[in-house]
């Protein structure tokens, strides 16, 4: 069919993608409704947090009116959506800045951490998975299985603290909390917000080294979970390929095991792997909330937890919403990658 009607084929793909976009739009709307709803059932009074507890009744009423709290709930939701479309998530109580500005300020630190973490997870996880698949059912496979299950089971904040105790306090290999040693703090002008890149651009190699020493430990620990996930998925993808007939053909042709595994089988799982890595990147944000708290990493997660403990709902809901959006987007990207690169979905 698809060979006979090439144009119909691409049209179908487009409608399929359109349908998918529709679903995403509904999901996003639901996401907004949920953050809105959670923000409204909060026991904290948003008016009190603005006017203070000793304001008189008329000031209170005025702010109550300004915030639109005297309107019906669906109108409040409409206002919330309107503000959101203007990029307004309200003001954070902690800093007094707009939440969007705050998030833009702290987000690069998290991106930096998460990117190094996913690099670690992929570089370790993929070879582990391939190794396990080529030794299915034998000792090597079982060892990888235990390693990846451990990666799933470790409480990431605890591992972070143990890492600090062992590699920072006892051995002195890693830098402690924060992004750089205190002496270098604020030395490099922020251009991209990514400290490693900023330091390299400015030619400040001492800062760069210090930053590397600080980021390695949290990034590796954060990447553990992705490593476990990527290793397991790689294993199952590879097993799928290694059972196919073209692999037997390749072996019969007398290719070396290395060539069979890496040049033939591995190339065919690349697309699947790419989508998995995209999804793993999203779930890193969850670990980042905890690991940033442990390492006093001035990123998104620290911002979220400190706002949470202060009951700063605008900031919390802004963060939660952003995480949701990133998740949905990454899912969409993973889907699109699959559609574009995998010939079988055409």
């Amino acid at each position: 069919m698809s060979i006979l009607f090439p144009s119909g084929r691409s049209a179908r793909r487009l409608t399929g993608f359109g349908h998918r976009l529709g679903i995403v739009a509904v999901t996003l709307l639901g996401l907004l409704a949920m953050t809105f709803f959670i923000g409204r059932v909060m026991p904290l009074d948003p008016v009190l947090s603005i006017v203070g507890s000793d304001a008189d009744q008329s000031t209170y009423d005025q702010v109550f009116h300004q915030l639109g709290l005297d309107q019906p709930l669906y109108m409040q939701f409409a206002y919330y959506l309107r503000d959101l479309l203007h990029g307004d998530l309200g003001r954070a109580l902690l800093s007094g800045n707009a939440v969007t500005a705050d998030i833009a300020r702290v987000f690069p630190a998290t991106i930096e951490l998460a990117t190094i973490a996913i690099l670690f997870g992929t570089c370790v996880g993929v070879p582990l998975g391939v190794f396990a698949a080529t030794r299915k059912g034998r000792l090597g496979d079982q060892v990888v299985r235990v390693i990846s299950l451990c990666g799933y089971s470790v409480p990431v904040f605890w591992f972070g603290m143990m890492g600090l105790i062992i590699f920072y306090a006892w051995l002195g290999w890693a830098g402690g909390a924060g992004r750089v040693d205190l002496a270098y703090d604020g030395l490099v002008q922020s251009r991209t917000g990514l400290l490693l890149i900023d330091a390299a651009l400015a030619g400040e190699w001492e800062v760069f080294q210090s930053a590397i020493r600080h980021i390695t430990l949290p990034a590796c620990i954060l990447g553990l979970h992705s490593m476990a996930y990527i290793a397991r998925m790689t294993r199952s993808f590879m097993l799928n390929q290694l059972n196919q007939e073209y692999i037997i053909t390749a072996r019969v042709k007398g290719l070396s095991e290395f060539e069979v595994v890496w040049r033939h089988a591995f190339r065919n799982i690349l697309v699947q792997l790419l989508t998995i890595v995209a999804l793993a990147y999203g779930s890193l944000l969850e670990g980042a909330v905890l690991i940033e708290t442990v390492f006093a990493w001035p990123g998104f997660g620290s911002y979220l937890t400190s706002s949470l403990l202060l009951g700063d709902m605008n900031a919390v809901m802004g963060c939660v919403l952003l995480i949701g959006i990133i998740f949905v987007t990454l899912n969409l990207v993973a889907d699109a990658l699959y559609q574009v690169f995998d010939p079988r979905t055409r």
Binding site: T27, L31, L285, E286, V289, V316, V320, I323, G324, V328
Partner: peptide, 12 residues
Amino acid sequence: ISFPGLVLALAF
């Protein structure tokens, strides 16, 4: 499902 479990639990 579009939230990571911990983050949603945190919000709740």
